[in-house]
């Protein structure tokens, strides 16, 4: 095995890892403000790519206009999901929430299949397909787009949570939602906000990855689960730990596919997921917390 090849795998792993990080942060944001793991998160990623295609194909919009439209529609879908399925739940036990979000997830998937069929589609790259050579490895311009956009989103996310009133209010809810409610923060609105942000981030992840990997109605499960894996490695943090989790997963997958077998590539994420849950459920970087009754 040559060093060049390893470099090549690492580079391509980096950009898929960035996607996983974005999806994982979406999971964490909702989890931190509600304690819910949203099994439908992956479907918003799928919707991002499919809706962009839809706007380009049907309405003949240019790519730069189709993207914001798709993100907007996804965000609306995320809001609707929270309003119609999560909020009215009378007994929000973990099991009921798991069942509801799974129900929502396959409902969205089924609807997409009816609307757009079972075919896989590809989205045009943002700026051509001319490979760029770095050292002895090559990458596509789309890889750079992915890394760049991910960085921007994560930066904006950080800014929002630490330097705006709404962001700070959401953090307060995640530490202690009852106390946040007592000091006048509208907790239910913050929950809705968390769905808005994570569905928008999911959509964006789905859009920037679609030119590389193609997209279809059923890509949501795998992308969603791998994003969750990234979040678990990062200890459900909505910050840098999950980004590192995503990158670790992306690189391991890419190396695994290259060095071991591409068929078992998808299994890597799930084996890591199980190992982390069994051995370090608080994430790779977190400290153990004592369980309270």
């Amino acid at each position: 095995m040559q060093l060049d090849q390893i470099l090549q795998f690492a580079l391509s792993g980096l950009s898929t890892g960035a996607i996983y990080a974005l999806i994982g942060i979406g999971f964490s944001i909702i989890y931190n403000s509600t304690g819910i793991i949203n099994f439908a998160q992956g479907e918003f990623v799928m919707l991002g790519g499919m809706l962009t295609l839809f706007f380009i194909g049907l309405l003949q919009l240019p790519l730069w206009a189709a993207i914001p439209c798709a993100v907007l529609v996804c965000t609306l879908a995320g809001m609707l999901f929270e309003r119609l399925a999560i909020r009215p739940l009378r007994k929000p036990t973990p099991i009921n929430l798991v069942i509801i979000t799974i129900g929502g997830s396959i409902f969205i998937r089924g609807l997409s299949m009816l609307l757009w069929g079972k075919d896989t589609h590809s989205l045009p790259s943002f700026s051509g397909d001319e490979p760029i050579t770095i050292a002895n490895a090559t990458i596509l311009p789309q890889h750079l787009w992915i890394l760049g956009i991910t960085l921007v989103i994560i930066g904006a996310n950080k800014f929002f949570f630490y330097h705006t009133i709404s962001g700070k209010a959401m953090r307060a809810c995640s530490y202690n939602s009852r106390a946040a409610g007592l000091v006048g923060i509208d907790v239910r609105r913050m929950v809705l906000f968390s769905f808005v942000i994570s569905s928008a981030m999911g959509a964006m992840a789905g859009i920037i990855v679609a030119p590389l990997t193609m997209t279809s109605y059923d890509v949501g499960i795998m992308l969603g689960l791998k994003g969750f894996c990234a979040a678990i490695i990062g200890g459900m943090s909505s910050g840098i730990a999950t980004v590192i989790g995503g990158l670790i997963l992306g690189i391991l997958e890419s190396l695994g596919a290259g060095l071991i077998s591409s068929g078992y590539k998808d299994a890597i994420a799930f084996i890591i997921l199980l190992l982390i849950l069994f051995i370090r459920p608080q994430g790779l970087f977190g400290k153990a917390e004592s369980e309270r009754v």
Binding site: I99, I100, I102, G103, G104, S105, I106, F107, I108, R109, G110, L111, M113, L114
Partner: peptide, 8 residues
Amino acid sequence: IIIYGGLL
């Protein structure tokens, strides 16, 4: 699958 999702 829509029916299953909706039913759930």
